[in-house]
Computed example of a mutant assay.
Amino acid sequence: MIVLLNQIEAFLNNQPELVVRRIDESILQVQSEKASSPRFIDLSFETEPRIGISMVVDYFPNATSLDTAWKFLDLLSSPIERKEYFKGKARYKVDYRVIKETGFKELFGTGMTWLYPFWKKDTTHVVTEKEFISRANALKEFKSLKSNF
């Protein structure tokens, strides 16, 4: 899995406007320099494969490393809609939806805090962020990864 992570890291380091950090031997974190918020997407093979957007993480205990690599590249090459929920000025919930090529918005996950001023007025704010890499580049890289494993 480390070899796979090394290949993905090398590919992403060649992409303009991306900041790629290797947290340790098994965690890779990607962030766009032009994102409207400090959103990052990470891939980890510590104990079981997992992929996260900011504080929301999804685990893939039965997935192969190639399946997880594809999910990661798919996430990087898809626009993400972030819907923030506020009570007054306090953000208490965030939904992340991955916008598929068909236009379908698939819920990736929800982050929430339990401490918020529940008596204040509800407001929402929706931001759609562009993909980090092009779909064509993601497919090309995945084919390269498949041929090496």
Rank of each mutant, 00 (worst) to 15 (best):
K93A: 12
R50M: 12
R39G: 08
F149G: 15
R97Q: 05
E84D: 11
I23E: 14
K146G: 05
Y85E: 11
L73H: 02
V3C: 15
K34N: 14
L139M: 13
T47N: 10
F108I: 04
Y59S: 04
P38F: 03
V98C: 12
N137V: 06
A10M: 10
P79Q: 09
P117L: 08
D95I: 03
I41Y: 07
V127W: 04
I27R: 15
T124I: 12
A10Q: 15
S26L: 08
R22G: 04
S54F: 01
P117N: 03
L12K: 05
D24I: 02
Y116A: 11
A35Y: 09
F142C: 15
F104A: 14
A138N: 05
Q29C: 13
V126F: 02
V19E: 13
E84I: 13
K143E: 10
A63P: 06
T128G: 07
I27K: 14
V20I: 13
N62I: 01
R135A: 08
S36R: 12
E101W: 02
T124N: 14
N14A: 11
K143H: 12
T68N: 00
T123R: 14
D74W: 01
R39H: 06
K34M: 12
V19A: 06
I53P: 03
I133R: 01
D95G: 05
Y96P: 15
P38Q: 08
F142K: 12
R135V: 10
L43F: 06
G103H: 00
A136C: 08
K83G: 08
F11E: 13
G88K: 02
E81Q: 14
K93I: 02
W70L: 13
K130G: 15
F45G: 10
